[in-house]
Design a protein around this nucleic acid. Sequence first.
RNA 1: GCGAUCAUAGCUCAACUGGCAGAGCACCGGACUGUGGCUCCGGGGGUUAGCGGUUCAAGCCCGCUUGGUCGCCCCA
Length: 423
Amino acid sequence: MNQKFAGVKGMNDLLPGEIEIWQHVESTAHAVLARYGYSEVRTPVVEDTALFVRSVGETTDIVGKEMYTFDDKAGRSLTLRPEGTAPAARAYIEHSVQNLEPVSRWYYVGPMFRYERMKTGRYRQFFQLGVEAYGIAEPAEDVEQMELVTHLLARLGLTGVSLNLNSLGDDACRPEYQKKLVGYLEAHREALCAECKERLTRNPLRVLDCKNERCQEIARGAPSILEMLCQPCQAHFAEVQRLLGVLRVPYVLNPRLVRGLDYYTRTAFELVAADPVLGTASAVGGGGRYDKLVESLGGSAVPAVGFALGLDRLCLLAKAAGQVPTGRPELFVVTVGPAARDRALELATGLRHAGHRVELDARGGSVKSQMKRADKSAATYALVLGDQELAEGVAQLKPMAGGEPVRVALDRLEATLTELKQS
RNA sequence: GCGAUCAUAGCUCAACUGGCAGAGCACCGGACUGUGGCUCCGGGGGUUAGCGGUUCAAGCCCGCUUGGUCGCCCCA
């Protein structure tokens, strides 16, 4: 008895009918990123476990409970990447890219893995488009990226996504703020949810974006980090906002925005969609500045800023927005008899080489059934070629939308198709 | 990780208090021996998610497993 297999929970197949929207989203992204001077990089799906522990942060949910970690046969602890920034930084450092060029603008597209309870828009294998710029500390770079992502979403026809913005300070001011925040939260300790009591000691900033209503109430009264930024952070943040204004990029200031990863400094932003198709999985992207990451992973002090978009969610939104592209053949070749089929194969091949999209079904069959296939393929024209036509050196070109078939000389086919395509 | 809920053809769903597993759509073919869509006729397709239990008899009742969906949590 043959066993029937099922895919691994939370990891999906993308089949024709579904893949088109992905190709549309990805090709749009490739085109937009190229215009902003970004180059694609590809790094392995598996990395040294310690890379994520050290960069993402031991107290984060990702490292604490969501990683796919295993030992290989040599006993190394490896992890299926849960995010792309750390692997990119690792590659950047490993290849000493900072010595080759002062500024690098990279992006990547690929699967990420997190062991989580799944639901709409959240999978155990999901796809991210990540964008990383190394070597520029200026706020203009942060803004360029936020404008880029805003533009990309617009190109995809996605409205109703808002840009949330905050600054998380840096080593100079965040510890100070954190101390003050803990002081405030300690005073309300009893009212916090169980998890937040835990966060209070492990990662107090995360209390700020707890979804629990009572915690939110308390968070609203908490001191704002924006009032405690050190002078350089404050100047940076002010410039970010000024330039967003210059470029007319709409954003919402959200002093309680905290990212789920530890490596961020200064600018942090998140893209939140209003569309109900995503349910509670409303974040479609997020990012920020991580000026200390490269150094903390053993590289030199290279400032960087980046963000990631969740492609699964983007595709859900694009589909809901009716952005489903359709591809249809120009020509579907219908043949009658073996001699005609040989000639048709030749013709189809020649037309394809000339750049036309042509389909032909080798199963043959009655003209009727071949016409049905032509109809189903949504081809613009059917080309009927049988012994009668062959004897005269012509074929019938029939518009599938309706209308009379036209007789076209076989040696005029390519030219005729090209003309029709242009008109 | 916690809670709720669901699982019958490729899809959407029927099947009485337990009694021969069905329809629509989709797919394929024919009516028209060389011309699609509309109509009519026919056909293929199911261990009723899986395993076990109760029963003369289980799609239906019970248990377990797996998977989907929703909420909590978190994020992309």
